[in-house]
Structures are given as C-alpha cells and as structure tokens.
Design a protein around this nucleic acid. Structure first.
Lengths: 141, 141
DNA sequence: TATTGTTATACTCTATAACTATA
DNA sequence: TATAGTTATAGAGTATAACAATA
C-alpha cells in the first residue's frame, strides 16, 4: 500500500513548487505583456477560447467579483478582442465571446508561451520531462 | 547520452506546469490575503527575511521600477512591518529591513503557506513527492 | 554629469455598495 | 423579491517622467 501520509510538506518540495510557479507565471506575464495584456486578460482569453459564458459565469471562472469583470470586458471590448452578445431568453444577461481579432490572437499567444516556458525545462532530459509531466498531471487530478 | 532536444515543449507538460503554477500562486495569494498582504508584499517580506537591500536592489529583486517600490515600502512601513535605515556612507540611499513585527510575521506565513500547499500534493505517494521535488530542483538549476 | 530615491500622474485591477432592468 | 449586470467610489499596484539631493 502506497504511503500518502498526512499534511506534512517537505520544505524542499514546497520551495521547488513556489519557485517553479513564480518562474512560470513570470513567463506567462511576459508573453501577455508582449501583447499589452495583463495576466487576467490572458486567463480570460484562454477561457473564452472554449466557452461563451455569461458575465456571472466568467466571474466565477476567474474568481473575481462581477463588477471587476465588467471593467475587464469593457477594456477588452474597447480593444476589439471580445464582444457582448445577447443571451436570447433572459433579457438581463449576455454572453461574452471572442471577436475574430480575439480568436486570431489565441494561437499566437499559445506559441509564444510555449517558447518562453520551454527553456525552463532545458536542463531535463526528455525522459525526465515525461516523468515530470506525469507527476504533475497526477498531482492535479 | 541523455536526450535534451531543443526547443519543443510537450503541450501536456506545458499545461501541467501552467495549471500547477496558477494553483500554487492562488494558494500563496490566499495565505497573503489572510494577513491583508498582496503577493508582492509577500515576496518582499520573503526577501527581507534574508537581506537588507537598498531600494534599488529591492526593485531589482522584485523586478519592479524603483518608483513602484517606494509606494510598496511606504505602505508596509505605515503598517509597521518594515523600516528605512540609514545606509552609512552614501547619503542618498537607505537600507530596508524588517521591524520586529515584520520579523514575527514571517514564520507564521511560512507555516500557513505550507498548510495550503500540502493538500495539493495529497494524491501523490511519498516516493512520488520525493521524485517531483528532485525533478523540479534539477529543472530550476 | 550620473545615481538614488521620491513625487506627480495615469492606468489597470480589484472589491464594496448602490443602482437599473428584468425575472 | 431576487437576480444579472453596471456604475460610483476607493485603494493597491504598476510604469513613465520630472524632480531634489548626493556623489
């Protein structure tokens, strides 16, 4: 039986997770900034690539207040990246979706992010990268 | 000879790194927010635990403009967590250091962070956590 | 002249509270 | 009454530009 003992966390693992995370997030921010986007805008675009949420749903996805998302969408809409489209039945609500411009941006961003994150893994062998990916995926499950 | 081929990054590894990082950073933010601190304030306190930098050095550590750090230190000083102390030789510069209150905060924060991050690793066995830590440390080196 | 740090200004992000329109 | 979204307001965080003091 495998050992999955309780709540203790090896300080070395904690430090490694924290350092890795700061490094990854910094690279994401860098990719976003290259397109004059904030990290939040980047997350929003990633969500809208696969969903057309209502404002309240988007707020939940992002972990933000609805009022914060209003401004977020305002600014992104002013830049022509997203749009509010009528929701049909409920006259109070809208759906948010990417414009053609917004949709065009997504793959470029993904490619840039990959290029910025790839160097982080350069000191690992292919086999080690495979193992790392497996462990992280199992951890997130 | 181990294979460390070029710039390609497995999308699965990239996603796993990104998701893990968002999860870790969210937990760090949560620990910080529990003490009315931002993520930046948390990073600043972590740096000051081991250094007494000048303003410009602190700005470099944090990757921020000096003007941004001025406000950061102002707010932290108003809360009694940090202080500006004369640098001795150079009349233009100061050193920033933790106050007694600030120093008291650090271990509490570390413990809370560990408690928030530990559950993330719960689905891995002890051996897997060990391997994950090793891989991350090698990656960061 | 160059450097250190601050200040003035402007913008994004965020939350709380109050509001409008619809249900 | 309750819900969806916006607006008003306030504060943190950030950068650029201009500044004072020191080197």
């Amino acid at each position: 039986m495998p050992t999955r003992s309780g709540s203790e966390l090896d300080p070395k693992l904690m430090d490694a997770l924290v350092q890795t995370s700061f490094s990854v997030i910094a690279r994401l921010s860098q990719a976003a900034a290259a397109h004059d986007l904030s990290l939040t805008q980047l997350r929003m675009l990633a969500i809208l690539r696969d969903h057309q949420p209502k404002m309240a749903e988007l707020a939940t996805y992002l972990g933000l207040d609805r009022s914060s998302v209003s401004g977020l969408i305002d600014r992104a809409a002013k830049r022509g990246l997203v749009q509010r489209t009528s929701s049909g039945d409920d006259g109070r609500s809208f759906r948010v979706s990417l414009t053609a411009d917004g949709r065009r941006l997504a793959p470029a961003l993904t490619a840039e992010i990959a290029e910025l994150i790839a160097p982080l893994t350069r000191s690992l062998t292919i086999a080690e990268r495979q193992r790392l990916g497996d462990l992280l995926i199992r951890m997130l499950r």
